[in-house]
Computed example of a mutant assay.
Amino acid sequence: MAYVVTEACIRCKYTDCVTVCPVDCFHEGPNFLVIDPDECIDCMLCVPECPVDAIYADDDVPADQRHFIALNAELAANPKWKPITLQKPPLPDAAQWAQVRDKFDQLDRG
Score class of each variant (00 low, 15 high):
residue 49 E to M: 15
residue 78 N to Q: 04
residue 70 A to T: 10
residue 13 K to V: 07
residue 55 I to S: 09
residue 62 P to W: 04
residue 75 L to Y: 11
residue 29 G to R: 06
residue 3 Y to N: 15
residue 94 A to N: 03
residue 97 W to C: 09
residue 77 A to H: 06
residue 7 E to M: 11
residue 59 D to W: 12
residue 109 R to T: 15
residue 9 C to Y: 01
residue 8 A to Y: 03
residue 83 P to I: 09
residue 48 P to Y: 13
residue 88 K to W: 00
residue 58 D to A: 12
residue 36 D to V: 10
residue 81 W to T: 01
residue 20 V to I: 14
residue 24 D to R: 11
residue 83 P to H: 04
residue 18 V to I: 13
residue 39 E to P: 00
residue 55 I to E: 04
residue 67 H to V: 10
residue 71 L to M: 15
residue 2 A to K: 13
residue 92 P to L: 04
residue 5 V to A: 08
residue 98 A to I: 01
residue 56 Y to M: 09
residue 44 M to D: 14
residue 37 P to Q: 09
residue 29 G to H: 06
residue 90 P to W: 05
residue 90 P to N: 06
residue 50 C to G: 04
residue 58 D to F: 07
residue 84 I to K: 00
residue 31 N to F: 07
residue 46 C to H: 05
residue 53 D to T: 11
residue 23 V to R: 08
residue 10 I to H: 04
residue 14 Y to M: 05
residue 96 Q to F: 13
residue 78 N to L: 06
residue 20 V to H: 08
residue 28 E to G: 04
residue 64 D to L: 08
residue 21 C to S: 05
residue 78 N to Y: 05
residue 19 T to D: 12
residue 59 D to N: 14
residue 5 V to P: 03
residue 73 A to P: 06
residue 110 G to Y: 00
residue 80 K to G: 13
residue 35 I to H: 07
residue 59 D to Q: 13
residue 30 P to H: 03
residue 90 P to K: 07
residue 91 L to E: 02
residue 41 I to M: 12
residue 78 N to S: 13
residue 14 Y to L: 02
residue 88 K to Q: 13
residue 57 A to P: 00
residue 102 D to V: 00
residue 75 L to R: 12
residue 38 D to A: 15
residue 10 I to M: 05
residue 9 C to E: 02
residue 102 D to I: 00
residue 71 L to C: 06
residue 51 P to R: 08
residue 58 D to S: 12
residue 82 K to W: 01
residue 13 K to Y: 01
residue 17 C to R: 05
residue 46 C to P: 03
residue 1 M to W: 02
residue 100 V to Q: 14
residue 93 D to R: 12
residue 107 L to V: 06
residue 73 A to S: 13
residue 104 F to H: 07
residue 43 C to F: 12
residue 82 K to S: 09
residue 63 A to H: 07
residue 54 A to V: 04
residue 67 H to L: 12
residue 24 D to N: 14
residue 41 I to D: 09
residue 81 W to Y: 06
residue 95 A to E: 14
residue 91 L to C: 04
residue 90 P to I: 01
residue 71 L to I: 11
residue 33 L to N: 06
residue 9 C to V: 02
residue 23 V to S: 09
residue 71 L to A: 11
residue 32 F to V: 01
residue 7 E to T: 10
residue 54 A to H: 05
residue 4 V to D: 02
residue 77 A to G: 13
residue 50 C to R: 07
residue 71 L to Q: 09
residue 110 G to A: 11
residue 21 C to W: 07
residue 5 V to S: 02
residue 88 K to P: 00
residue 28 E to A: 15
residue 98 A to Y: 01
residue 96 Q to H: 11
residue 54 A to I: 07
residue 17 C to P: 02
residue 58 D to P: 00
residue 47 V to Y: 10
